[in-house]
Structures are given as structure tokens and as C-alpha cells.
Simulated assay, not measured.
Amino acid sequence: MFRTPDAAELACHEEHLAREGYVIVPELLDAAGCGTVLAAMQALHAPETFGDNDFTGFRTKRVFNLFARTRALDPLLRNPALLRLVRSILGPEAQLSIASTMEIHPDETPQALHRDDAYFPVNPHPPLVVNTMWALSDFTDANGGTRIVPGSHRQPGPVDPAAASIAVEMPRGSVLLWDGQLWHGGGANRTGEPRFGVSLNFCRGWIRQQENQYLSLDPALVRMLPDEVQKLLGYDICQFVGWVDGRHPMRAIVPEVRARIHAGLHRGTPAR
């Protein structure tokens, strides 16, 4: 399903991500994997309508809360190459912040350039967010490939709106990663076909996730997921952050433990 980049390639990608604020890992997901994931995402998109403003796109479809809806993305979330690059910026306790789809249809206009960590009003700050975009169709300048301003993650203020941004062009199966401080935006689709991407965005383990994973997913579902997926969804401890009544959060969603906590009983007290 996945290509396995060697250590030299990954080291080169790490250096480029840190220096330029973005990197493209080409064709990480094979054709069969792309087909499987795309079919699952298209099924979710079938009943959806277009956005209702310039930022979300009047000709763009989006679906959120993906890990409550499908298991098709679990392998992408756990991919070792992806996690190595994300953790090279955010550290070992990086967690999923939000997962969504972005299907840009013909005649969509360009999205305004923006930063994805702007909702954290702390400046200056170390990298707090690393976002990823999996290309389930080819990304080109013509079909709305994400536009970026390389190196702008090091710029303290906003970029000049007239500044030259470049379109990310990559074949399907590739993944784009970028620092949340990088100025970027969706491109205009001037073709007759939609451009389809899946965005898995990460943040440091000690800040709040953009999408509330704890309320988005049924605890019964979370208990069935692989340990690594549980941790990446935020069911983990980051230093001294994340405890529930002194317990690891995965212990706290076991039914009998939850009942005891909600009843206000102490650990070791039998639930009535």
C-alpha cells in the first residue's frame, strides 16, 4: 500500500520541511491504496453540498470528523514516514488536530492566503501545527493545487497579498506537509475535473486540538482502535497533561471506570 522511503530520503525531507516550511513526499501511497481511500471518501461526499463562503469555497466540498466515519484513513494516520516528518517538527507527542476532505470542483476561485496556526494567539512561538495533504488525484496548477509561499513560516508578519505564491504539483498518492506558520491557500480549479485531497493536521500534544476528538468519537469505538491510533487521536498523556481522575485517558473510557468517575467516586470504590 505504501512506498517505504529510505533513511537518506527522509533526512532530506526533514531538512527541506524545516528550511522551506513545506515538503512533498512523492507517491507515498500506491495506486491501489489511492483507489481504496478515494472510494471511501467519495461515498462520504455523495450527500454533501458545496461551501457557502469564499474561504470554504462555493465550489468545494468538505467532510469533517473522518475518524468517526471510516477506518479507511487509519493506515495513513499511522504511516511511519509521515509520523517521522511530523514529529521532527512537533516532537514525539504530536496528536491529530483535525481531519477533513477537500474536493475542489471546476470553477472554484483561489482561497485567500492564510496561516493554519492563526487560531493560537501567541507570538512569536515555536512550530505548533504541521498539516498534511494526501493527494487522491493529481495536483496541478490548473486544477487547484495548494498554493504556498516557501519560507514564509519564518516571516513574523503577513505576506504581501501580491507576493508570488507557487502551486504545489504532485501526482496522486503523494503527500504535502507544511508548517502551520506557512502562508498558503487552495488554488483555483480551471479544469473540468475535481481535485480531491485528504487533510490530516497535527498539533503538539499539550495544546487543544482544532476538532474535539473526545466528543467526536464514541468511546466504544475508540476502545477498538489500535493503540497508536488512540494515542494520535489524543487519548494519551503529554508530560503531565491529559489525565482523567489520575488515570490514563484510555483507562477512563472503560465503562466501569467511567461510571465510577461520573458518580464522583474515588478510585478503588466499588461502583453501585
Rank of each mutant, 00 (worst) to 15 (best):
P158Q: 14
G91F: 06
V244F: 07
L17E: 01
S216D: 06
A46M: 14
F58P: 12
H262T: 13
T191S: 03
W183E: 00
E48F: 05
G151D: 02
G268K: 09
L44I: 02
S88T: 02
I148V: 07
A32V: 15
L38V: 03
A164Y: 11
R71H: 15
P92R: 14
Q239H: 14
I253D: 02
W243R: 13
D54V: 14
D236V: 06
A259G: 07
S216R: 10
L76Y: 12
C34S: 10
R272F: 12
Q209R: 13
T49I: 14
P150A: 03
D107M: 09
P75L: 04
N53W: 05
I166K: 13
S88K: 08
D116R: 15
L83W: 06
E27F: 05
E27W: 08
D236G: 13
V37I: 05
H16D: 13
A7G: 13
L215V: 11
H45P: 07
A135Y: 11
T70H: 09
A94V: 03
S216I: 05
L82N: 09
G264A: 06
P106H: 08
W134A: 07
L232V: 03
A68L: 01
A220G: 07
T56S: 14
L44T: 00
F240P: 08
A167N: 04
N131C: 15
P75M: 03
P92K: 14
I24H: 04
T101Q: 03
E20Q: 11
A263E: 08
L28W: 09
F67D: 00
D138A: 06
G21L: 02
L265P: 08
Y22Q: 12
G144K: 08
V175D: 04
H184V: 13
A162E: 07
L44C: 01
R204E: 00
E14Y: 08
E228I: 15
H184R: 09
E211K: 10
G33A: 00
P249E: 04
R195K: 07
G144Q: 08
H153N: 06
G185P: 07
N123W: 11
A263H: 12
S97R: 02
P194Y: 03
A72V: 03
C12M: 15
E14T: 05
L177N: 03
T60H: 09
C12Q: 15
D116K: 11
V130Q: 03
G57A: 05
E103W: 15
L225T: 04
A94I: 02
V149M: 00
P110A: 04
L66C: 07
L128E: 00
P158G: 15
P249K: 09
I253L: 07
V241N: 11
P80D: 01
P270V: 08
F55I: 07
Y119N: 06
H105V: 04
C238R: 14
L113D: 02
A167M: 02
F55D: 04
L265N: 08
R251M: 12
P126N: 11
W134S: 04
Q181T: 11
T4P: 10
G185K: 10
V229Y: 14
F240G: 10
P171A: 01
P124A: 01
R87F: 12
G264R: 10
T140C: 00
E256K: 14
Q209V: 02
D54A: 14
A94M: 06
D160E: 01
G185A: 05
Q239E: 11
K61L: 01
V159T: 07
K61D: 02
R223I: 02
T56H: 14
T49D: 15
M1F: 07
A72Q: 01
A259Y: 12
A263Q: 11
F196C: 04
Q181P: 08
A18M: 12
